[in-house]
């Protein structure tokens, strides 16, 4: 026993002096018996809160413990549009539908003045719905969009006097999307016209009006031929690629 290599431990010195035992063991305090304090107020309140929360949860979600109910309350059903084709149809969203959807998002910028349905506000802001300017060529529409309008202005025979800010800070794609949206949603399209404005067309408009630094007045706009269309290839509404 005396050849124990671990002298510091001295565990083999059975019955030896306490001092030989390693200090960590010696200095250690006795584990005192547990106190008998009653449960205090703080934990009780917290417990009550947790119980209320949990019981509320159980009440709201358990659906009366019925085996045949699988749909959790507050569950949002599948947000995809219903219709023939199901998943496949939903995944293959036509290009024009996506383009219109994005256009609608951009149109949120226009809603404060022109209203969600493009009706405008009588006496203040002109309508877009069936407006001669929307129904007409895309050049005029693009010009207004990019440079804005200031001063007296007539729409469908009604006079307005207000300011429209130029929206040339929006990207070409966003301008194209919102113009498409406005024409297809609010305009009356001519026979054989699809109302689509492409990014290429908006680029052309930017080029055409790049020297103009001030907003349009009515006379300046009317100088643009009513049926003038922005140059650019027609696209296939399904794919967004130039039509054959």
């Amino acid at each position: 026993m005396s050849d124990n290599p671990d002298k510091n431990l001295d565990y083999e010195a059975e019955g030896g002096s306490v001092v030989d035992v390693h200090d960590a063991v010696r200095r250690e305090k006795v584990l005192p018996p547990t106190g008998k304090e009653p449960i205090s107020f703080g934990p009780l309140i917290l417990t009550a809160l947790v119980l209320i929360l949990g019981a509320g949860y159980l009440g709201a979600y358990s659906n009366g413990f019925r085996d045949d109910i699988y749909v959790t309350k507050y569950y949002r059903p599948d947000p995809r549009p219903a219709g023939a084709g199901g998943d496949a149809a939903a995944e293959k969203l036509a290009w024009i539908d996506q383009w219109m959807k994005d256009g609608k998002k951009v149109y949120n910028n226009c809603v404060p003045c022109h209203g969600p349905a493009g009706a405008g506000q009588p006496g203040l802001f002109p309508p877009l719905k069936d407006s001669e300017w929307v129904n007409g060529g895309t050049t005029r529409l693009g010009a207004i969009m990019l440079k804005g309008i200031s001063g007296p202005f007539t729409v469908n025979g009604v006079g307005y006097n207000n300011i429209m800010a130029p929206w040339d800070t929006l990207g070409d794609e966003k301008v194209a999307q919102v113009l498409t949206y406005i024409r297809r949603e609010f305009g009356t399209l001519k026979e054989g016209e699809d109302g689509i404005v492409t990014t290429e067309m908006v680029k052309a408009a930017r080029e055409q009006f790049k020297d103009r630094t001030t907003p349009w007045d009515e006379a300046g706009l009317r100088a643009i031929p009513e049926d003038s269309m922005l140059p650019g290839a027609k696209v296939d509404p399904q794919t967004g690629q130039p039509a054959q």
Binding site: Y57, F65, R66
Partner: peptide, 16 residues
């Protein structure tokens, strides 16, 4: 896809 009460009981227990 469980009967709704099963996750509900678990959720409540995880709160309790």
């Amino acid at each position: 896809p469980f009967p709704a009460w099963i996750p509900a009981v678990s959720g409540a227990a995880s709160i309790f």
